[in-house]
């Protein structure tokens, strides 16, 4: 009967909603780009993805070139209801991706090939899980990180 919503920080009124299929389509392209980076060890490829992550993390996942491609080529071919989601979870995932891609880019420039591969691998795993299994990175790591670093 009673519905008590105390999670004020979770659902403030005026939460920005975006088409939930956009970020997932973006994750599929990201998976491909990161796979290419891992196989070729190309700093140019990872630097490109770093820029895309930066746009996603700081301007929003609906502003990336992948989101643009989704709106231009994929969305017009889809029918039915548009599933929406809060913009913050995918934005958070883009920020985590940005962190790993930054490490990979610096490692690539310095010639640290093992670190490059490890950083790209983590990034790739998260993007692949998002694309293939609708994995929610923020759900899995945000609370664990908060528990670890913040006092009650």
């Amino acid at each position: 009967m009673a519905i008590i919503n105390q999670a004020g920080a979770v659902a403030p009124s005026g939460v920005k909603l975006i088409d939930a299929r956009g970020p997932r389509f973006g994750a599929a392209i990201t998976t491909f780009v990161l796979a290419l980076a891992l196989v070729t060890h190309s700093v140019v490829v990872i630097a490109f993805q770093l820029v895309v992550f930066a746009i996603g993390a700081f301007s929003g996942p609906a502003k990336t070139p992948y989101a643009f491609a989704y709106k231009k080529f994929v969305k017009p071919r889809l029918s039915g209801d548009v599933p929406t989601e809060d913009v913050r979870p995918p934005k958070f995932a883009q920020l985590v991706g940005f962190g790993f891609a930054l490490v990979a880019t610096v490692a690539g420039l310095l010639g640290a090939t093992t670190l490059f591969s490890v950083a790209v691998s983590f990034c790739l795993a998260a993007a692949f899980l998002n694309a293939a299994f609708n994995f929610c990175l923020g759900c899995e790591i945000y609370l664990l990180a908060t528990r670890a670093f913040k006092r009650a």
Binding site: R88, P89, C139
Partner: peptide, 9 residues
């Protein structure tokens, strides 16, 4: 729930 969580909503 948490802020960076799609299925929470």
């Amino acid at each position: 729930s948490s802020a960076f969580c799609s299925p929470c909503r």
